[in-house]
Amino acid sequence: MTAALLPPGELDTLWFQVGGTLCNLACEHCFISCSPENESLPLMTLAEIEPYLAEAEALGVKEYYLTGGEPFIVKELEAIVARILRQGPVSVLTNGTLVTQARAARYAQIAAAVPYTLEFRVSIDGFDAASNDAIRGAGSFEKAMRGVAALVERGFLPIITATQVWEPERDGEVVGGFFRELRARGYARPRLKILPRLKIGAEEKRTGGYAAEERITPEMMEGYDAAQLLCHSARMVSRRGVHVCPILVEDPRGFLGRSLARSMVPYPLEAQACYTCYLYGAICSNASSRVAADAAGY
């Protein structure tokens, strides 16, 4: 079957897989199967990031995201965040369990010194220990909540993200539960982002992968706003080089070489995970991403 070819836009968003595939947790729905043992993608150093930052500056990149794995296991993370914040806004995607009071205080100092915003996105999977820890491991809920509280205390407004592992009928109950729990823990105006499930990695084993017809055809792209897709204006950098997006870092079809400028080429949307982005829009960005799904009646 012919894949839809996405013409590239401008490079607005640059991701770094600073944590590689290493994580202190081993969530059973992780789309790249990160864990304490998965060294498929190693941690990144500031020195490895620098050349890409120079290229990004020349290309006028608008925002930066740091992910993994778990970024907080990277020893140089503070230096990396401070360095990138001199050049643009930074979002750190974390499970929150390693965010201590002392760390939150140091990041508040770093953020106060620059005009650009520093965001933290803390992922959890349920608004109580029972539902969250079933997926993320015992004790992870309490640790994440302590991390959130430490960030809030220092003036950050962390974006709480949750993958929709519950049935859509329970949306109101679950989302309402998140808000109540976060407020009860001192986060007065919580920001919440719900992510769709990506049926790859550990999640494929958990609930099954994509059905054969769940893929993007060239016809589906007619009249579709290509800017909705992250790969239109973003790239991901890992220790290996440049990848088309944060989702396809482990997929050879997602690898685009070692130059950001040369990675902005028409891209065939042939991976089945592309189908989820098609439905939900730029799911990886900080903005909530339910709009496309709402419009499509999902």
Binding site: E10, D12, G60, E63, Q87, G88, P89, T117
Partner: peptide
Amino acid sequence: PRRTNEFLWESTTPDPFLRKL
């Protein structure tokens, strides 16, 4: 200049991006 509904907030509009505009 490139998109009518693009949000240019102070904290998310870095200098290199403005130079491009």
